[in-house]
């Protein structure tokens, strides 16, 4: 048999089917069946009838939105400075911002907990603050990375053109720089927003289980071997992610490149 280029795709197709498509089908199956394996809307009813479930979902959304906003506010100027040769002449500074991701996630988060407690921000009594700090600390590199790559490609003459046409610094920021870097902002936002929704290690460790995010909620049900209800919540999350992807796709239209996803 002659070797064709498309054969190179076989390993990935096998992986895709085994680890993405089949598990997603499993989620669908479990979400809409009861424990006896019969098709039912039992889980839908159960989820929307209990206020706690809705609250957990809303709280998770609030954490995800805040985390995204804070990361963007912090990461945007950092990425700008890192990508600007005038301020940053060596790649070392950039490495320093990316380096936390090289350390084991669980160790890093535990260390954050100890550090916060040590400086007096108690993970027990100020758990929402510590969770937020942990989330921002953890996701900041993922914001800096796509923003940095976008900013490297900035045409600085466009910024000069803006000043030349009479715009001051803030007008240039809002009317030129941010629109120019929008693709980077969108991919940065998606890289933070979606994983925050499903994260649970950070909130568990840094809030001593006071803050329950949607991810830990799902984990809770799976641990109790309630596959059906857990799957239904995973299904809801899938829907949320789908919506956020659609939104980012739409706003990305017309802008080429810059996206990491």
């Amino acid at each position: 048999m002659k070797f064709k280029r498309k054969f190179l795709a076989i390993p990935y197709v096998i992986f895709l089917v085994g680890f993405v498509i089949i598990p997603v089908l499993f989620i669908f199956y479990y979400a809409f069946t009861n424990k006896a394996g019969q098709f039912s809307f039992e889980n839908v009813e159960k989820f929307f009838s209990d206020e706690t479930n809705i609250n957990v979902l809303l709280i998770s959304l609030v954490y995800a939105i805040f985390n995204t906003l804070i990361c963007l506010l912090l990461g945007y100027p950092i990425a700008y400075i890192l990508a600007n040769k005038k301020y940053n002449r060596s790649p070392i500074l950039y490495m320093l911002f990316i380096m936390p991701t090289w350390i084991n996630f669980v160790i890093r988060t535990s260390a954050t907990r100890d550090l916060l407690n040590w400086i007096g921000i108690s993970t027990g009594s100020m758990s929402s603050i510590t969770t937020m700090i942990g989330l921002v600390y953890n996701y900041l590199p993922f914001v800096i990375l796509p923003l940095y790559t976008t900013m490297l490609k900035i045409d600085t003459y466009q910024l000069e053109a803006s000043y030349d046409l009479g715009a001051n610094k803030s007008t240039t920021l809002f009317k030129v720089l941010i629109p120019m870097t929008l693709p980077g902002i969108i991919s940065a936002a998606t890289m933070v927003f979606m994983p925050t929704l499903s994260s649970y290690v950070i909130s568990d460790i840094l809030s001593e289980f006071n803050v329950v995010l949607f991810g830990s909620y799902i984990d809770l049900y799976f641990n109790q071997a309630n596959w059906n209800f857990g799957s239904f919540m995973a299904f809801i999350m899938l829907c949320l992610i789908l919506v956020s992807v659609l939104i980012s796709r739409k706003s990305e239209k017309g802008n080429e490149g810059g996206s990491v996803l």
């Binding site: 045409d155 003459y157 466009q158 000069e160 053109a161 803006s162 030349d164 046409l165 030129v176 629109p179 120019m180 929008l182 802008n255």
Partner: peptide, 15 residues
């Protein structure tokens, strides 16, 4: 009160 025409135009691509 001066304006410049840049070498590589530097037009705003988002507009």
């Amino acid at each position: 009160p001066l304006n410049t025409v840049f070498q590589r135009y530097a037009l705003f691509h988002h507009l």
